[in-house]
């Protein structure tokens, strides 16, 4: 009898816990998504009206003006294209070069394999720091040069090791038989290894694309004195620091010409936030499994 009562009590407690837990997870989702929703609301609301505050779930004076200003401001359009172009180029180059290095490291018979593995893995831990890096880039003529976004990030040691682990799990007979048919190493890499590695390459491509899109430090340190090389993230950073002190100040530079409408740093920042995070948020539901797949590709061993 006592035991049955216990179980019944347990069930009641368990149900209450379940309900509370479902509700708690709902709050988690709300806390994760609401900041974006609120930013979207501000970005679509009249800037002067937003100053009054009290915007929660829906724009009070809906307008596209913030976005229109954004896409009419020369600097921001340039920055947008720099961001897009460098993301595409870096992703393609980094994935290709990292895959090629991984292929070399996966050839067990290669004489330099051990040396090269250590040579590449060590770079994940040994780092000279910012200032020697700056002087190197300067002597290579990369400072204030578009190529500073591309050349230094063509190869990722971690990516190499993840792809190599994946190649190791492929059946060796495939490359062997191609070799017997007289294919050279480079052809085996291009025609056999790359197609077989598609899943891991998709994940690496996403990582690299997200990382490149989100980067601002390179602009800040190596290319900040050339407006033409600014990126969307860096433009946002400048707005962030200008508006942190005076959140609601009206910036005369951001007043679009030929219009009585006024735009505030806060509103334009909301619009840029949405533009800068849109590629990630929109593609996220579709590519989500590739985003996390890498974690399961797992064990990177030196």
């Amino acid at each position: 009898m006592a035991k049955a009562k216990d179980i019944k009590q347990n069930n009641v407690a368990s149900n209450i816990f379940d309900i509370a837990n479902y509700f708690f997870m709902f709050i988690v989702v709300f806390v994760m998504l609401y900041p974006f929703w609120n930013t979207i609301v501000i970005s679509f609301n009249d800037a002067m009206d937003s100053i009054k505050g009290g915007l929660w779930f829906w724009p009070r004076k809906p307008t596209f003006f913030n976005y229109k200003t954004l896409f009419q401001t020369r600097n921001l359009i340039d920055a947008f294209w720099v961001s897009v172009s460098k993301t595409v180029i870096v992703t393609v180059l980094n994935v290709f070069c990292s895959a090629m290095a991984a292929y070399i490291l996966s050839r067990k018979e290669f004489v330099l394999r051990n040396f090269m593995t250590k040579f590449i893995v060590a770079t994940m831990y040994v780092n000279a720091g910012l200032i020697p890096q700056y002087f190197l880039y300067r002597s290579l003529g990369l400072i204030n040069n578009y190529l500073v976004y591309i050349i230094p990030v063509m190869l990722g040691a971690f990516n190499v090791m993840v792809i190599r682990t994946f190649i190791h799990e492929l059946p060796e007979s495939l490359a062997e038989s191609a070799k017997i048919d007289g294919a050279g190493e480079f052809r085996i890499f291009i025609q056999i290894i790359i197609p077989l590695c598609k899943p891991v390459l998709a994940t690496i491509a996403l990582w690299v694309a997200v990382g490149t899109w989100n980067a601002w430090f390179d602009t800040f340190i190596f290319a900040s004195s050339k407006q033409k090389l600014s990126t969307l993230q860096y433009e946002m950073m400048k707005l962030l620091s200008s508006s942190m002190v005076q959140t609601r100040a009206v910036d005369p530079n951001l007043k679009a010409h030929g219009s009585s409408n006024i735009i505030t740093p806060n509103s334009i920042r909301a619009a840029i936030t949405i533009v800068a995070s849109a590629p990630i948020i929109v593609s996220y539901p579709f590519l989500q499994k590739y985003f996390v797949q890498g974690l399961h590709l797992g064990g990177v061993k030196g």
Partner: peptide, 16 residues
């Protein structure tokens, strides 16, 4: 999802 957004975006949201 927030893991994939830049710190610029996140700190912007935090500041707001």
């Amino acid at each position: 999802l927030p893991h994939f957004l830049s710190w610029i975006i996140v700190t912007g949201l935090v500041a707001n």
